[in-house]
Design a protein around this nucleic acid. Structure first.
Lengths: 220, 220
DNA sequence: TTCTAATTCAAACAGGTGTTTCAAATCTAT
DNA sequence: ATAGATTTGAAACACCTGTTTGAATTAGAA
């Protein structure tokens, strides 16, 4: 028989609770009781709560990041200039592939991403900058190629606007989909949500720079 | 002499710390020590920490909401159809006016808004739905008038994408502006930031609906 | 001034947190 | 089967949280 190891029981319970309630609001006692293991086993197997959070995130990022990296490589290798729509589309397949990795994997990862970025401890930020900096570079390269007209300052801000849209939507996607379902029979699955995000982001990043915006602040 | 009352010393310290660190990560002991008042005075004057959070938010919302409401009224009273740019622009003046109310008022309110919406307790949500529901109605009315083509489902999601962009940007605006300043001399003030948001949001909400998005989920 | 109500203060309370301890149980290889 | 390492378990630890208490102080009105 394929017994679940204690480590995996902890990881499975933790990822679900972290996604639902955030990192800070999920106590080790809650995790271990839901995982049906002893409280001390978290510190025995992972060392600390911080390390557990990182382990939960790592399990997904190891699946997601190489796929995203490959998709961006393809886009950057192509002869012709990609559209912004194409750039953002390259996130979709890696995202959806997580459902083959674990059930509800896409949804859980989306919520974890949202929690991870909002979190003041910045666990996710640590991963992105120290482990996956190359992917970040590819993302900015692809966006710049799709929309080369933006000034560096304009580009910086639009990337962060994009990040904000994504993170917020991902973090609250389940709650929002519930509302949409009950309010006007809009029965959207995770894929539908992600596909709705793409045109919004592409249009936002591609928006014409406001001509009448005084004080646009670019001093260099 | 105009002595600061204990209540105001608490409110001032609390709003700064809440904006910086979020509600949950700010303890009453930290607030009262920075405000130089006794720990028990928070519960004496406000009743509880939750009530203090609401009091902090209320002080700003009472300034902001009537102005926003008026701006939207003007837009809705006009003969001709407003542009999305105009709709989002009507948030700008009420936002900036907060600097006349308190020093750095705009910035602190922006961060509080971000914290308040991300917060799992949903203090801000309580205000918006129970106290300022009429303003919410006006916002959706204005957006719908500026872009009547959107289906209800499409409209719902784009409003929430917008909200996400705004909330995330507001919550982290100070950190992001620091980065922008050091990375490429982009010395943007709060007004500049808000004015950069408007074209992004207007373009996103006004984006053409993706024709090739299968499963768009509208079942009604 | 005197009396009463409002406020401040130090201390304790009750409950929750992540982490550590060390004996008991379990597994693993000899 | 037995010895040794790994893993589990119940309990305690040290610390932090929001809240309450009741006495000391201050303020305001008669």
């Amino acid at each position: 028989m394929s017994r679940q190891t204690t480590q995996n029981k902890i990881l499975d319970a933790a990822e679900r609770l972290f996604a639902e309630r955030g990192f800070a609001d999920t106590s080790l006692r809650l995790i271990t009781s839901e995982a049906d293991v002893n409280l001390a086993s978290v510190n025995y197997h992972f060392g600390s709560k911080k390390a557990l959070i990182k382990a939960v995130l790592a399990r997904y990022l190891e699946q997601f990041m190489p796929r995203l990296s490959n998709a961006l490589d393809e886009l950057l290798a192509a002869e012709q200039q990609p559209t912004l729509h194409q750039v953002f589309d390259s996130f979709v397949e890696p995202m959806l592939a997580l459902n083959n990795f674990r059930s509800s994997g896409t949804n859980i990862f989306m919520q974890l991403l949202g929690r991870g970025y909002s979190d003041s401890q910045g666990h996710l930020r640590w991963f992105l900058t120290t482990q996956y900096g190359d992917v970040l570079t590819k993302i900015t390269a692809a966006v710049k190629r799709a929309n080369p007209e933006l000034s560096p300052g304009e580009f910086f801000w639009r990337m962060h606007f994009t990040l904000g849209t994504v993170v917020f939507t991902l973090a609250s996607n389940e709650a929002l989909r519930d509302i949409a379902r009950s309010e006007f029979n809009e029965n959207l699955d995770v894929e539908g949500l992600v596909r709705r995000l793409v045109p919004f982001l592409a249009a936002g990043v591609g928006a014409p720079v406001a001509a009448n915006s005084l004080n646009d602040g670019v001093s260099k």
